Simulated assay, not measured.
Amino acid sequence: MSLENPSALSSSNPSPYPLSETETGFAFTTERGAVYHLDFTSDSDYLPDTPFADSVYSFSILPVAGSGSFDRKDPRIEPTVIQALQVFFASFPKAVLLYVCSTENDQERVRSRLFGQWFSRHQKGFEKFDFHYPSQHLYMSAIVRRDFPESWRVELAILQAVEQHK
């Protein structure tokens, strides 16, 4: 993935933090010294019997422990995550990106709602499928570009995979 010429964000949003490339994606440091990793890992085993299996990736937002003070209200985190997603999809336009909300502190529903709000503000050109199973504490989304051929197959394949793992 290349950080050259990332897509511009709306001028109404705060500026994103500078991203640095890592082995698995990107990292950034907030003004308060918190370090986050935005990881994109191949997840072809999740939907192995699909024509797009080799294009499935998992996305993680990982605060690095012991790296300063985490500020959940930091307005620059949202545009930073969005910029990383834009760079990723520019490099992998046929990707199916899975995002499973962490169950840490029983906050998976809150994380899902927050990610949904971010997506709704920046969805141009993308489609998101949500999968919510509160009794299992599973809140998951799949994101594809709007021009992804037969995106409905992505939704169906994930529904089937989740049903098999219940």
Rank of each mutant, 00 (worst) to 15 (best):
P14M: 15
R113I: 03
Q136A: 13
N105L: 15
H122N: 14
A34V: 14
Q136T: 01
R153N: 13
F92L: 13
H37S: 10
F88A: 01
Q123I: 00
T30C: 09
F88S: 03
S55T: 11
P75H: 07
S120W: 04
A27I: 05
P6G: 00
N105P: 03
V35L: 07
L85T: 05
A161D: 08
A161T: 04
M140D: 05
A95Q: 03
H165F: 03
L159W: 01
S60P: 00
T29R: 14
L38V: 15
F70R: 11
G68L: 05
C101Q: 04
L156M: 08
R146P: 00
S20K: 09
E150R: 11
Q160A: 09
A95I: 05
H165M: 03
R111F: 00
V144F: 08
C101V: 03
F52G: 13
Y17K: 15
H122E: 01
S151T: 09
K124A: 12
H122C: 09
S120Q: 06
S42T: 00
V35T: 12
Y17E: 06
A161G: 05
A90T: 10
H165E: 15
A65Q: 11
P75K: 12
W152P: 01
S69A: 11
G116F: 02
Q123D: 08
N5Y: 07
F70N: 12
L98T: 07
Y139H: 08
R109A: 11
